[in-house]
Amino acid sequence: MTLPAVVLLLVFNYVPLFGLATAFQEYDPLAGVWQSPWAGFYQFERLLNDSLFWGALRNTLWLSFVQLILFFPVPIALALLLNSVLSERIRNFIQSVVYLPHFFSWVLAITIFQQMLGGAGALNQFLRSNDIGTWDIMTNPDTFALLVTSQVIWKEAGWGIIVFLAALAAINTDLYEAAAADGAGRLRRLWHITLPGLRSVIVLMLVLRLGNALTVGFEQFLIQRNAVGHDTAEVLDTFSFYYGIATGDYSYGAAAGLFKSVISLLLIWGANKLAHAFGEDGLYRK
């Protein structure tokens, strides 16, 4: 019964692994993988001498960092806040609203942002009608990192609370009662009971985030790259697409992709080691 799934994975996940050989070739679409001439590490040398590639790497790391600082704490805070609401009906209503944007496509989410904050959007419409001047956030390279992070927060922070809510529900309420009886106030209960209860989930999410530090979202940048220019919006994944497929330089794009995959694997491994060092399970157990 597992056969159809295994066949699909073999064809579309395992065969492409052999296709990574193109990264060490001068791939010629007419000749195919078998006949194309080998080029050794030539493509990687090109990458290391390409300022566009370094730009994409720098943008990726910077955006990852901004998201780690600004996005990561939001679902935790929102989950704590929501968990403190007593009425179950209100809790459920808020949950069903904040989960919703997770199911929007990036095209839709960015269209909504454009309609609200773009040059002709609701915000500027309001500013213009009050003679305050205009403020085009959608095309400004200087604030791009903040823009994409707020898009990620809008779209994914709500969905991100699920796992923290589950962890909060698993904390034994007797602990709170005992602590309160011993005179611990709200903040001390938060610090000594709630946060330790969330610790392993937080570490797991951090490991995942660090392991994916080179992946900041592909479609989101593909759609907005032209509006703000590739100097700020080019990330490793879009680089691989534009210089690999769009320009037909397949080997070059494959080399960029392979570079990213290898570093990502190392990052996952390293983040997990770190989690083990803190006595947590992380993504997998030793």
């Binding site: 692994l17 990574l20 193109t22 691989s240």
Partner: peptide, 16 residues
């Protein structure tokens, strides 16, 4: 394994 290791965009495109 496929959750951690994949060929990436271009090799998949070439296979398809």
């Amino acid at each position: 394994i496929t959750m951690f290791v994949n060929g990436g965009l271009i090799p998949t495109f070439l296979v398809v």
